[in-house]
């Protein structure tokens, strides 16, 4: 059960984040050398570990279980519906589709433009990698908490799923030395947004004392409802906007 409700969704969602972090680290490494981005990546992982260990342990030990579920549920809804909204806008043509190759090329151009002194430590490269890994790593932490909120077994499964995703994506990155454009990120984000939202509704109301019929099985129903609504929303938005109309994502 923990494999289906925690490990696999955690793997898929974390893989998306690792792919995004890999794109930036690769761009830095290819343009400016590998020492600085690897140090930046390591520093970000240490920062993440410290933050998760201190805050995570403090929250889990101090906050009562019901309140914890409600807090996790609320955060998941804020996080998941944000993903789902963006995915719907992308599929409706209002926001540009996420293109890993384009992001990689833009990052390469920006890093080339920065210039570099060969003798000095590449501070810019380290900071860019640090920020990217920290940002995507924080999202992975959210994902692990989301799918692991059901208890120790679920948490362990979610952690294993995320670590496995990290290993697979890193190994592919090392082997290919190129951004992983074949990963269907837009579809994955759509699905993960719906999954996170379904978990959010489930945990928040469980925290309020509501017992879902069929317990964890009701997650399937919640997920189906979110996916159906999203599909209808995409059709509705396409109908609202003129054919072919696209606006820059950052302006929406």
């Amino acid at each position: 059960m923990a494999l289906a409700t925690a490990a696999l969704p955690s793997f898929a969602a974390s893989a998306v984040e690792f792919v995004e972090a890999l794109t930036i680290v690769l761009a830095v490494g290819v343009t400016r050398g590998w020492r600085a981005p690897l140090i930046g990546t390591l520093a970000a992982l240490v920062t993440l570990a410290v933050v998760i260990a201190t805050l995570g342990v403090a929250i889990v030990t101090i906050v009562p279980e019901h309140l914890l579920k409600a807090i996790v549920g609320a955060l998941l809804l804020l996080f998941g519906l944000r993903w789902l909204r963006k995915a719907i806008l992308r599929f409706a043509g209002i926001v540009a589709i996420h293109d890993e190759e384009l992001i990689y090329q833009r990052e390469l151009a920006a890093l080339h433009a920065q210039g570099q002194k060969r003798t000095a430590f590449d501070r810019i490269g380290a900071i860019v990698a640090y920020k990217a890994v920290l940002l995507e790593g924080t999202e992975v932490a959210f994902i692990v908490i989301a799918f692991g909120a059901g208890g120790t077994q679920a948490l362990n499964a979610a952690i294993v799923g995320a670590i496995a995703a990290g290993i697979v994506v890193t190994a592919l990155g090392i082997a290919l030395r190129a951004p992983l454009t074949l990963v269907p990120e837009n579809w994955l984000k759509f699905g993960v947004g719906a999954i996170l939202s379904a978990f959010g509704v489930f945990w928040f109301t469980e925290g309020l004392g509501f017992a879902w019929p069929g317990d964890a099985l009701s997650l399937v129903v919640l997920l189906a409802i979110f996916l159906t609504v999203s599909f209808i929303a995409v059709r509705m938005l396409r109908w609202l906007l003129p054919t072919g109309a696209q606006v820059a994502g950052r302006n929406v």
């Binding site: 806008l89 209002i94 929303a233 938005l237 609202l240 906007l241 929406v252």
Partner: peptide
Amino acid sequence: LVVTARRAKRRL
């Protein structure tokens, strides 16, 4: 989503 789409439509 509807508000966002309308905003985008106005801009276009």
